[in-house]
């Protein structure tokens, strides 16, 4: 199985040194991304989803207070422990990343075209000036930028946020990567622009077989894009499921709670939303046992004592003591809302 995967992450652990000890920000995360697959990593703030994405690109290594362990295998090659220089080659040409704030991700004092050219040069595509500018224009056209010749000469602040994100994607594609890590790529954009950017990503996957790890908090975006869903809570992956299964019968109470907590635009749901009580715990104050148990409506005494191991149920992998009951529909959530603290 692992040799079919483009990316395999095993036991990824990210901890942070605090004044009093170490706090785990990501705990033993394991998952795969297959070639041409879109995997969505969903979770709320503080779940560790952004750190996971950055760790894959080896972007956390320089931080003194952060410790990363585990294994990240990309295309059969172990990336953890690689020296900086090799990692940079991987980042330029095999794994690329786009960010939440598309304007801040670009250098404000360098023309857009030059930033794309720089990314191409990094991949060793140095050629005559006119050839390069023709290639840049092609690339920009491919990410849906009209008037590429004009845009190339502009600075990031002169173009809109949506267009900056397209430039970010162009820069990511310049090295012809196999995997795109997209960290909340549309969160800062308006819905109509978000739809355009999501369509572009889907199209790139279709045309070039690009794999995408899409990190998002928006269940709508996940439903629209994902082949497979990974749900993260307080640093752990609590559920992994094919998207089609997840949105019909999520097996982890947190996953189900997330789906049910969002107001829906497509159906009238009068009355109260089924909110999850409480708030995401901080890494320092992670509850014992299952981290979700204080907020969980179907918790058992066991949940406070023992951390549930991931359990495979059909296509789903769930870390919950009640997963089996959840899947057989013997449990219903949030009929009466628990008090909020």
């Amino acid at each position: 199985m692992p040799d079919e995967q483009l990316l395999s992450v095993r036991d990824l652990r990210i901890s942070y040194r605090t004044g009093t000890g170490e706090a785990d920000l990501v705990r033993a995360a394991s998952f795969d991304v297959a070639p041409g697959e879109i995997v969505c990593l969903v979770g709320e703030s503080g779940s560790g989803k952004t750190l996971t994405g950055r760790a894959i690109l080896g972007l956390l290594h320089h931080n003194d207070r952060m410790r990363v362990s585990g294994s990240v295998v990309f295309g059969g090659r172990e990336l953890t422990g690689l020296p900086d220089r090799s990692l940079r080659t991987v980042r330029g040409s095999q794994i690329a990343m786009i960010f939440q704030d598309p304007v801040a991700a670009l250098d404000p004092v360098v023309r857009v075209g030059e930033q794309v050219a720089e990314a191409m040069a990094r991949r060793g595509r140095r050629r005559g000036r006119s050839r390069v500018s023709g290639e840049i224009a092609d690339l920009l056209r491919r990410v849906g930028i009209t008037d590429p010749e004009l845009r190339m000469r502009q600075f990031p602040h002169e173009i809109s946020g949506g267009m900056c994100q397209r430039i970010g994607i162009a820069i990511a594609l310049a090295g012809d990567p196999g995997l795109l890590v997209a960290d909340e790529p549309t969160t800062a954009l308006d819905v109509t622009i978000q739809a355009q950017v999501l369509d572009l990503i889907a199209e790139l996957r279709r045309e070039r077989g690009l794999s995408v790890l899409l990190i998002t908090h928006d269940m709508g975006v996940a439903a629209r894009m994902a082949d497979r869903i990974l749900v993260m809570y307080a640093g752990s992956i609590v559920e992994e499921a094919p998207a089609a299964d997840f949105f019909v019968h999520a097996a982890h109470p947190y996953g189900l709670g997330l789906i049910r907590a969002v107001p829906r635009i497509d159906i009238d749901r009068p009355g109260r939303l089924s909110a999850i009580p409480g708030a995401v715990p901080e890494a320092r104050n992670r509850p014992p046992g299952c981290a979700f148990h204080p907020r969980c409506p179907v918790r058992l005494d066991l949940c406070a004592e023992e951390e549930p191991a991931p359990l495979r149920l059909g296509g789903q992998l769930v870390a919950c003591h009640r997963a089996a009951d959840m899947l057989t529909g013997r449990l219903s959530l949030w009929d009466s809302e628990a008090p909020v603290g």
């Binding site: 809109s160 949506g162 267009m163 308006d190 819905v191 109509t192 622009i193 978000q194 739809a195 355009q196 999501l198 369509d199 928006d218 269940m219 709508g220 975006v221 996940a222 439903a223 629209r224 994902a226 998207a243 089609a244 949105f247 019909v248 789906i259 969002v262 829906r264 635009i265 497509d266």
Partner: peptide
């Protein structure tokens, strides 16, 4: 039409706007 719905089975209306605000 642009708002993504948390249901992969929901019908999608292809009505994307071109261009920026």
């Amino acid at each position: 039409a642009a708002v993504p719905v948390p249901d992969p089975a929901a019908p999608r209306i292809e009505q994307n706007l071109s261009g920026d605000l």
